[in-house]
């Protein structure tokens, strides 16, 4: 009985800590400034990547940086509101392949490594962004 109570207690605590993740991830990424900086490195990584650069040739890089920073800030529980188009609208007609999506993921990982983001925070951000795979690839 005692064991069951303990197990339940730890389960509740675990759920609570999982619920608290969103805001702590925002902090782990260095809040708004940290996310802006991280996304700047990310955009630079993309710009140097021959595998994906063709999709960004006509892009307004400053706007792209601003919008993706806002979006990430909102997704990780920060006090931001992303008011841009949804991911399906943005990527329709681009024909992003699975290989290109993975290349972008690798660029983000490289950027996070450069900013010395802990593996746990890296994984949480990747997990959140991986959910967009279906909305981005093959549109």
């Amino acid at each position: 009985m005692k064991f069951l109570q303990m197990t339940l207690m730890s389960f509740v605590l675990l759920l609570a800590s999982a619920g608290a993740h969103a805001s702590s991830l925002y902090q782990e990424l260095g809040e708004k400034q940290g996310i802006d900086d991280l996304m700047a490195t990310f955009v630079l990584e993309i710009a140097e990547d021959e595998r994906v650069i063709e999709h960004f040739e006509n892009a307004d890089i400053d706007r792209f940086h601003r919008m993706i920073s806002l979006h990430v800030c909102e997704l990780v529980g920060g006090p931001c509101t992303y008011d841009g188009a949804n991911m399906i609208e943005v990527h329709t007609g681009m024909g992003i392949t699975r290989t290109e999506f993975n290349a972008i993921v690798e660029n983000l990982i490289d950027a996070m490594e450069q900013h010395e983001i802990p593996v746990s925070a890296q994984n949480q951000l990747l997990d959140i962004l991986a959910d967009f795979h279906g909305e981005i690839v093959g549109r």
């Binding site: 593996v119 746990s120 925070a121 994984n123 949480q124 990747l126 997990d127 991986a130």
Partner: peptide, 10 residues
């Protein structure tokens, strides 16, 4: 694969 599974590990 779970990108952020237990302990926030993959």
């Amino acid at each position: 694969a779970w990108l952020a599974g237990p302990l926030d590990r993959t």
